[in-house]
């Protein structure tokens, strides 16, 4: 199982650390298990990079041979996970928030983020997502093909007001969307934040070779593509993350 992670902060960031996207991938090749997650903090909500970080960290908190922290379609399991992350965010954000009136008001409003996560068990992959981070299942071949795109299947479905994971526990919980994928050896799972996911889906309409690029690109290729497409105005200038997992080839 090969993995890769690429990140490009939006151009007016003062540092990489202030980007609000986080992601990761964790594998146990012997058991054919892996977990992959991308999270994108909402830029207008308070300490959203911290929230993205907690979503990713909590997804990897248990050993990979333990049951996943959230179970497919199990609302109680998701509710516990959501509550735990929200409480952690509130505790940490209180410590890290200044005393200015706007900082305190924002703290009271809580934070928000989109995320998409995959749990790979042998030849099956469970996917969950809240908001507009995406997972793509790409099958390499003479012509690389997108087998599945979740939860968004079209660039036209993106908008500026996606449903988000909210830390404010007084608000109704936004339940994730779930799906499962049947994997073939060598299938590639790609997690992507909304800006690049929207661009990939739009570009693929005219040029299916974009799936090959997504699977084969190096870190330098990724930076080049992001810079070029932002300049052309075809990719939103936003924090951008891609996490890639090539599933087992030896089964």
């Amino acid at each position: 199982m090969d993995t890769a992670l690429f990140i490009a902060p939006k151009t007016d960031r003062t540092s990489l650390l202030s980007a609000e996207d986080r992601g990761g991938v964790c594998v146990d090749p012997k058991r054919g298990r892996a977990r992959l997650v991308v999270a994108d903090g909402a830029g207008t909500s308070h300490r959203s990079g911290l929230l993205a970080e907690l979503i990713v960290a909590s997804f990897f908190a248990e050993p990979i041979d333990a049951p996943p922290p959230v179970s497919a379609g199990d609302n109680a399991s998701y509710y516990r996970w959501h509550r735990r992350i929200s409480e952690q965010w509130t505790e940490l954000a209180q410590v890290e928030t200044g005393t200015e009136w706007y900082q305190q008001q924002n703290l009271g409003r809580g934070s928000a983020a989109a995320f998409a996560a995959a749990i790979v068990e042998a030849d099956r992959c469970w996917c969950l997502a809240v908001g507009d981070c995406c997972l793509f299942q790409v099958r390499p071949g003479a012509n690389h093909a997108c087998v599945a795109s979740f939860p968004m299947s079209s660039w036209a479905a993106f908008n500026t007001t996606p449903e988000l994971f909210q830390t404010d526990l007084d608000r109704p919980v936004i339940w994730p969307r779930w799906t499962h994928l049947d994997l073939e050896p060598g299938d590639v799972i790609v997690g992507a934040s909304d800006g690049i996911a929207e661009w990939v889906l739009a570009a693929a309409v005219q040029n299916p070779e974009v799936w090959r690029l997504l699977v084969e690109m190096s870190a330098a290729d990724f930076q080049d593509v992001v810079a070029k497409e932002r300049e052309a105005g075809t990719m939103v200038d936003d924090d951008t993350i891609v996490v890639r997992l090539v599933t087992g080839t030896g089964r």
Binding site: R13, L17, S18, A42, T44, H46, S48, Y102, Q103
Partner: peptide
């Protein structure tokens, strides 16, 4: 104006 300020103070970077 309060909403403007709050919208510009999100994220992790301050205002």
């Amino acid at each position: 104006l309060t909403e403007f300020v709050l919208a510009c103070t999100g994220g992790d970077e301050g205002i």
